[in-house]
Design a protein around this nucleic acid. Structure first.
Length: 435
RNA sequence: GUGCCUGUAGCUCAAUGGUUAGAGCGCCUGACUGUGGAUCAGGAGGUUGUGGGUUCGAAACCCAUCAGGCACCCCA
């Protein structure tokens, strides 16, 4: 390797990107803690056998290697399997139900594309050890508040249930074996359309009559309650699907009671999601401004967490894709776009006035104002203001001989170009007053 | 991992196989003041992703490789 570069599919996040990412993380964390979720962090490395056998054929995407001691290690593929390990390992000290959130990188050896990377950051929130539909509803409420506070316009969360899909497959005369391929075909509906899905189903060996039946059921749309009623009628012969629809109904009641606006979610029987371990409700949040895919997704997986503990531990959760949220927000112009966390820049008029400027900067910082100070007293005001401008700082402060003599400071608003001389002790108030 | 498309200045892009690879924006210096953006003048910046090959001659054509994008696959 002669060229200096980073690894394919893994990115450096320069300051402007980091400020937006930190904003996203701060908002999502705030919302999660508002719901009482507790933080957890686990290592990015796990013993390979911890990750193996949980993900099916996706295991080819796991980064694996040996350390110097010959131990077989793997980079975590998501934060769900490590969670299962933690729940088993600390079963004596954790009281269920447990709400936990986790933030950090995960790794998949995929072909990179826009919004998909080999190192990607996720914020996971899960409720471990509750099968209540209120837990499902709470996860959806959390995500709705987070996306709203991030400023996403017109997002919607699509809700479905694995056993509704199962019921659709069974009613159409398919057995469980065929189900996986059928789910994946259905999941492509928004991408390839009804005709495309039909073609795919036929290719999987589904009879034309069954394919038409599946397509009919999967395209049911409308008010959540109406969709549920329609499905209930058509899947009445299937006990598991009927129970699943009852479960979805209870979740919808919870969502309404939690104050989630009705336009923020709908029941979509065509939503499948690829991950094999989901057992109950599944969901995905989408926005018309990002047709490429979902902003986030999740669902209920009652089997996975208990695999290490040796007993079923019902769990529902979601993962925010920080990278994807970042890409979409950047494209839509949402969130902060500054390249510096500073809001103030203190100029230094000349070497002999450096002390006065530095103590002004110290006062601002003591009051909690992020403050940059010039490092080059000889540079001239023009150059210093240019630096302040380029950093996207809101205010520049000038402390020259005249101001010093009068005990004042020139406060310049770099956004509108207005400036005025204010008494030094009133600087903070003046900045606060102008936002 | 498979197929297709693309890599030229910091960014967006030009340049029939033929002089010394250009432009806009950005960047640096200066002109105007105790002051950013605007205007004007000047300047820096390139082994054309990398390595081979074809040719009298390659940014262009061929092969390999690396990286990015799109479609499979899957998903955040």
């Amino acid at each position: 390797m002669s060229k200096v570069q980073n690894i394919k599919g893994m990115r450096d996040h320069l300051p402007q990107a980091m400020l937006l990412r930190q904003h996203i993380l701060a908002v999502v964390t705030r919302v999660a803690e508002r719901f009482g979720f507790e933080p957890l962090q686990t290592p990015v490395l796990e013993y390979a056998e911890v990750l193996e056998g949980k993900l099916g054929d996706e295991e080819k995407l796991i980064y694996r290697f040996e350390d110097q001691g010959g131990r077989r290690l793997a980079l975590r593929y998501d934060q769900t399997v490590p969670l299962a390990r933690v729940v088993a390992q600390y079963s004596g000290t954790l009281t269920l139900p447990w709400r936990r959130y986790a933030y950090g990188p995960s790794y998949r050896g995929e072909r990179p594309a826009r919004g998909r990377y080999r190192e990607f950051y996720q914020f996971d929130a899960d409720i471990i050890g509750s099968s209540s539909p209120l837990a499902d509803a709470e996860i959806v409420a959390l995500l709705s508040e987070a996306l709203a506070e991030l400023g996403f316009p017109g997002f919607t969360t699509l809700l479905n249930h694995r056993q509704v899909l199962g019921g659709i497959a069974r009613v159409s005369g398919l057995d469980e074996q065929a189900a996986g391929g059928v789910y994946r075909a259905i999941d492509k509906f928004d991408k390839i359309g009804a005709a495309g899905v039909r073609e795919e189903l036929l290719r999987l060996g589904v009879s034309p009559a069954a394919a038409d039946q599946i397509l009919l059921l999967v395209q049911i749309e409308g008010e959540p309650a109406a969709v549920l009623a329609e499905l209930a009628g058509r899947l009445a012969g299937d006990a598991r699907a009927t129970a699943a629809l009852e479960n979805l109904r209870a979740i919808l009641v919870g969502l309404a009671a939690m104050g989630v606006p009705a336009e923020r979610y709908r029941v979509a029987p065509r939503l499948a999601r690829g991950l094999a371990y989901y057992t109950g409700m599944v969901f995905e949040s989408i926005t018309p401004h990002w047709p490429e895919g979902s902003l986030l997704g999740g669902g209920r997986y009652d089997e996975l967490i208990g695999q290490f503990a040796g007993r079923p531990i019902p769990t529902v959760g979601l993962a925010f894709g920080i990278d994807r949220l970042h890409d979409v927000m950047e494209e839509l112009g949402l969130g902060p776009r500054a390249s510096s966390p500073a809001t103030a820049y203190v100029t230094i008029f000349g070497a002999e006035l450096a002390g006065a400027s530095l103590s002004l900067a110290r006062e601002l910082r003591a009051a909690g104002v992020n403050t940059l100070v010039s490092l080059d007293p000889g540079a001239g005001l023009g150059k210093q203001l240019k630096e302040a401008d380029r950093k996207g700082v809101h205010y520049a402060l000038v402390l020259g001989p005249d101001e010093l003599a009068r005990g004042e400071v020139v406060l310049k608003d770099l956004r509108n170009g207005e400036q005025r001389s204010v008494p030094r002790e009133a600087v903070l108030a003046a900045m606060g007053a102008e936002g």
